[in-house]
Amino acid sequence: MNYVKAFAPATVANVACGFDIFGFAIQEPGDIVEIKRKDEPGIVIADITGDAGRLPRAAEKNAVTVVMLHLLKHLGISDFGCEVILHKNMPLGSGMGSSAASAVAGVVALNELLDNPLSRQDLLRFAMEGERIASGSAHADNVGPSLLGGFVVIRSYNPLDIFSIPVPEDLYCTLVHPDIEINTKDARYILRNEVSLKNAITQMGNVAGLVAGIMKSDYDLISRSMVDVIIEPVRSILIPEFNEVKKAAISAGALGCSISGAGPSMFALSRGVDTAWQVGSIMTETFRQAGIEANMHISGINQGGALILEKS
C-alpha cells in the first residue's frame, strides 16, 4: 500500500456540564488527510488547503504530523517516509475540534498505511499528542469521539479510561459557528483553578443526569441536566450575543444549548431533526441580527468516527 486518504469528523466537546470528559462526533464537516509513501525517510507536509497559510508546515509543529512521528517512534520505525496533504474543512479556533480532526485523520491514515498494527483504541493516546501541540493540553474529549464515534465519556486521564454510551436515535445536534475566533489556549487560561463545593455538587449531579438521560432516552432529564455552572459562565463572556442565542435556541424547542468546546461555536441538542433545523435557524438569525455571520450544521450523533476514504 502506497497511498491512503482518511476523514475525521468535527466534534462537540464538554457538552455543557462535562468539561474535558464528554464529547460526541457529528457527521460533517471534517478534515481530510492524504498520505503517500516516498523513498526518503521522514515526514513532509506537501500541502495544506483551507488554512489561509496559518498552520505550521514543519512536521514536528503540526497536529496532523506530530501524531505520526509519535506513532512511528512507538513502533520503532525509523526508515519510513511519506508526504502529507491536509485539507482543513472547518475554521481554526472554531470550537468544533479542528485540531483533533487533523490529528485523528493523520494517525488513522498512517496506521492504515502500515497495515493497522494498532487498534483504534490504542491510537487514542497518539491522537491526543496532536491536541497537546495545538492547545497545550492533551485532552481526549475531541479526539476520542472523532476517532471512535459515538458519545464518549473520559472517566480518567491517568490512567486513560474512555468509553461510549448509547444515544437515542432521535437525538440531534445543531452546531452553529459565528464568524469569530477564540484561541483554545486563551479559553483555557481564563478558567479558574478552584470551584466552590456548591458548584461542584451541582455539576456532578448534572453530569450524572446527562449520562442517565442519554442512556434512558429520557429527553426531559437530558434537558434538566444540560446546565454548566463552572465553565460556561466564564467562557461565555468571550462569545458576543451568547445569552441571546441560547435563549433563542431554548425558545425554539432545544433541550439545551451551550458552548461547543472552547467556543465560539455553540451547540444545541434537540429531539427530532425538524426541531434541530428550527433551532439552528433562530440561532444563526440571532447572531446575524447582531451583525455576526454564522453557519450551522445539523447532525445526528456520528457513531462511526474516522473513515478511510481511499487506499491503493
Rank of each mutant, 00 (worst) to 15 (best):
S102P: 03
D51A: 02
V4I: 15
H139N: 13
A46M: 05
G97Q: 05
A200Y: 11
I250L: 13
E40W: 03
K185Q: 14
N14Y: 12
K311M: 13
P166T: 03
S281G: 02
G305I: 08
E285C: 06
I43S: 02
G213A: 12
F19S: 07
I48M: 11
M96Y: 13
T11D: 07
T284C: 15
E241L: 04
S251P: 01
G130R: 03
G305Y: 07
I298R: 11
G18V: 00
D228Q: 08
A187S: 15
S146E: 06
N62T: 08
F22S: 02
A200S: 15
A134L: 06
I77D: 14
G97M: 04
N206K: 09
S217Y: 10
I201D: 04
T11N: 11
I301Q: 05
T65H: 02
H87C: 01
W277I: 05
A254Q: 11
L175M: 10
K38M: 13
R271G: 04
L148N: 06
I162F: 04
E131R: 12
Q303Y: 05
A248L: 05
K88E: 06
V176W: 06
V44C: 07
L72F: 07
P166F: 08
D141S: 12
E131N: 12
G130F: 08
K311R: 15
T275Y: 07
V67E: 01
V66D: 03
G253P: 12
G30L: 03
Y189R: 14
G256I: 11
G42Q: 13
V229E: 12
A212Y: 10
N199S: 13
V227R: 04
K311V: 09
R120S: 13
A249I: 01
F22A: 05
I239E: 00
A268Q: 11
L191N: 12
N206E: 07
V227P: 00
E28W: 01
K61T: 01
I45M: 12
E60A: 12
A59G: 05
Q203W: 02
V64M: 02
C173I: 10
S94E: 09
A13S: 15
N199R: 10
A101P: 00
M68F: 01
L92I: 14
Q203T: 09
G106C: 10
A109H: 00
I239M: 03
S223Q: 10
R271W: 09
I308W: 08
G280L: 02
D47T: 01
V279G: 00
A252Q: 07
L148C: 12
F126W: 11
A268D: 10
H74G: 06
G300W: 00
G130L: 03
I292W: 09
S156K: 10
L197M: 15
A200T: 10
I154R: 05
G30M: 04
A294H: 06
S196N: 14
V64R: 00
S94R: 08
D228T: 04
A306K: 05
I301S: 03
D170E: 15
A200N: 13
F22E: 01
G213R: 04
N295E: 15
I21Y: 02
K247P: 00
I237W: 02
F24H: 07
E310V: 09
L118G: 01
D31F: 02
F19W: 07
N302C: 11
T202A: 13
S156M: 02
V207D: 00
A134R: 08
C82P: 05
K88P: 01
G150R: 09
H297K: 11
V107G: 00
S223G: 14
T65C: 05
V15A: 01
T49H: 08
T65Y: 00
T11R: 06
